[in-house]
Amino acid sequence: MFEKGYIDENYVRVSRDELFSFVVKVLMKLGVPKEDAEIVADNLIMADLRGIESHGVQRLKRYVDGILSGGINLKPNIRIVREGASYALIDGDEGLGQVVGYKAMKLAIEKAKKSGIGVVVVRNSNHYGIAGYYALMAAVEGMIGISMTNSRPLVAPTGGVERFLGTNPIALAAPTKDKPFLLDMATSVVPIGKLEVYRRKGKPIPEGWAIDSEGNITTDVEKVFNGGALLPLGGFGELFGGHKGYGLSVMVDILAGILSGGTWSRHVKNTSERHSEVDHFFMAINIEAFVPLEEFKEKMSRMIEELKSSKRHKDFERIWIHGEKGFLTMQTRLKIGIPIYKKVLEELNQIAEMVGVEKLKVKG
């Protein structure tokens, strides 16, 4: 198995079904409709299953706080504002981002089935979890899926020290003869959730992830949270392509924010605030409109095999394909349970006590 069964004493394991049921019960207690609660739970738990701890159930408190503060509309009027055969503009009415995103990508897929391409942009939504979740929805349907979202300002532009850009993730998924190809990445060096994980564990962050309020590269996570900023993909300056990550982040703001009639990252707010103004971009490409699906899958698989069998650096055991580690991790965690950091477990059980549901059952 890809992931060893052993985990250190700071973690416990919880089954996927137990975790899913727990999240659904918590959200329903807060007034979220069952169908919507299941979409949110599936999104969060897919992150944990695939090893993206930063975007998994440790984020549940963020949504609970957003609901309790009134920042999330539990009964949104998610509506189509403009529409054509291959496109649509949706207003999310401040609903849960996962619910808005799920419905928007479903619409993009429906349009792609009829028109070859479906593009759906969304304004007035909330944080939508992992971008790859929506891209994979299209890949399962035999299509290429693209998903992007802007987010609150956390990243300094190249040459700046101020938080201006979001981590603005991009995801692309494509079917193969085996497991789908999945690129799911922030346009910053790392997402803010990674820093939250280090903060919980009381560990310094790797050098090159972020700067302090004066623009100095720092490993002190508290300095980042207190006036510092993440760096764009490529890192500090232009030497290693930091300006390219900066440009990709702006691209997401253009496609998700400005094109939807929404806003750009500097003006996006926290989930717990009213009118957080998060915007999304979704695209589904019907492969059959261009080439036969089986031909596409066969060529994708051949390309991947050629990549994996290309000459390998002596310091690496293998060449990975995007999405492969996450797929193998998911297979293992479905069997032996999802590792949950004990401090996260405590937080989840505090939420359970607050809303009046049973605490999480840990695997023995």
Rank of each mutant, 00 (worst) to 15 (best):
6 Y>I: 15
6 Y>R: 14
12 V>C: 04
14 V>C: 05
16 R>P: 03
25 K>S: 15
49 L>C: 08
50 R>K: 15
52 I>Q: 13
56 G>N: 10
59 R>T: 13
63 Y>L: 14
72 I>M: 10
77 N>F: 11
81 V>R: 10
84 G>A: 08
88 A>I: 04
100 V>N: 07
105 M>W: 04
108 A>L: 01
109 I>K: 02
113 K>E: 12
118 G>S: 00
119 V>H: 03
120 V>H: 09
126 N>R: 14
126 N>L: 09
128 Y>D: 07
131 A>L: 00
145 G>K: 01
157 P>T: 12
158 T>A: 08
164 F>L: 15
170 I>W: 10
171 A>I: 03
172 L>T: 09
173 A>R: 02
178 D>N: 15
178 D>A: 14
183 L>W: 10
192 I>M: 15
193 G>I: 06
194 K>W: 07
201 K>A: 09
202 G>Q: 00
202 G>R: 01
206 P>I: 04
207 E>T: 05
208 G>S: 00
212 D>R: 01
219 T>M: 04
225 F>W: 05
228 G>K: 00
230 L>N: 03
230 L>P: 02
231 L>V: 00
233 L>H: 06
243 H>Q: 11
250 V>D: 07
250 V>W: 14
253 D>V: 05
253 D>P: 00
254 I>M: 10
258 I>Q: 03
262 G>P: 00
263 T>I: 07
265 S>F: 13
269 K>R: 15
271 T>Y: 13
274 R>W: 00
275 H>M: 08
280 H>K: 09
283 M>C: 06
287 I>V: 06
287 I>P: 03
297 K>Q: 12
299 K>V: 06
301 S>P: 03
302 R>D: 15
302 R>Q: 14
314 K>S: 13
325 K>Q: 13
326 G>C: 07
328 L>W: 09
328 L>G: 04
335 K>N: 15
349 N>R: 04
350 Q>G: 11
352 A>T: 03
356 G>K: 11
357 V>G: 06
358 E>K: 12
358 E>W: 04
364 G>W: 10
